[in-house]
Amino acid sequence: MDFTNHKMAPLFTINGRTVYMTQSIFGTWVVMGILIAFTIFVRIYMRRKHFQDVPKTGSLQNVLELAVESMHNMAASNAGKDLDWLGGYFFGVFAYILLCNYAPLLKLRPPTADIATTIPLALNTFLLIHVLGLVRRKGEYLKDFVKPVFLFLPIHIIGELARPLSLSFRLFGNILGGMIMMDLLYISLPIFLRIALPDAIHLYLDVFVGALQAFIFSVLSMTFIRERASLEEE
């Protein structure tokens, strides 16, 4: 049994150390390619001829507007009305994590089953929390760290550092666990049973858990940002 991230081809060499294209880098490129191709297609398709002021029910424009608007509403209700512009960023994060989690459906290794994919995503959230907090609430933001007395400062700092850690490990652990369970199932089944039977488990471990984890990552990030950066009164 081997669940490691295999090297596929050497990319380039720095200081005598070769950087390899691993399975998760390949998966990331495929996901990026799909997302970029789709955005370019939408950009060109929606330009003139197909744009409607009131889109027909079920047309592509209708579906896209529904997706953008629901993400905007999610940001407004979770991150606060004054931070609803974060919906654009979290739409990108959601789409990226969702497609990464769905990569096993294309027989790729899911890029989110690699800790190097999830930690940068969580660090983005960490930066957003603290930069937005410092810029928008200034003194109030710093005062939060010494509530109720100064002695609590180390506890607050550890709590803040634990957030990106738990965000990244949650996504990583869930997807890696799903991947290992699928691989074990494929190894243990005889070849003639590998056609239809694993699909039901794909439906749960990849489709359901993948969508749930993408949703939870974005919603939890927005909730954390609201706690530190929103000017809205509770």
Binding site: G173, I180, L212
Partner: peptide
């Protein structure tokens, strides 16, 4: 869903240690 995901975190930590 959010609460269940937060409750799940400890299990994920244990799972990562096992891995």
């Amino acid at each position: 869903l959010i609460g269940a995901a937060v409750a799940e975190t400890t299990a994920i930590y244990g799972f990562i240690i096992a891995i």
